[in-house]
């Protein structure tokens, strides 16, 4: 178990950054769940809002992807 303390910090940082993706997962789930709840209440209006659903999911997911990117950069590029 010998190693560089810098590597240790790097890996801990990568792990912490990856938690951010969990936030994005919660966000995407929230978007989809609320869409489903609304769609079940008013199914006739649901079809016209799928584009909005995907836009919302994309925005929520983008932030998770940012944290994934930071994790990748920490892991490989730093």
């Amino acid at each position: 178990m010998e190693g560089n303390i810098g590597d240790l910090g790097q890996y801990i940082g990568v792990g912490l950054t990856a938690i951010g993706m969990g936030g994005a997962a919660i966000g995407v789930g929230n978007v989809a769940g609320n869409f489903l709840a609304g769609a079940l209440r008013n199914p006739s209006a649901a079809a016209g809002q799928t584009a909005t659903l995907f836009i919302g999911m994309a925005f929520a997911e983008a932030l998770g992807i940012f944290s994934f990117l930071v994790a990748l950069l920490l892991m490989f590029a730093v």
Binding site: A58, F59, E61, A62, I65, F66, F68, L69, L72
Partner: peptide
């Protein structure tokens, strides 16, 4: 930035 990184990030991941 988000437009490009979303696509690339999803694919890389």
């Amino acid at each position: 930035v988000s437009h490009s990184i979303r696509l690339a990030g999803n694919m890389i991941a």
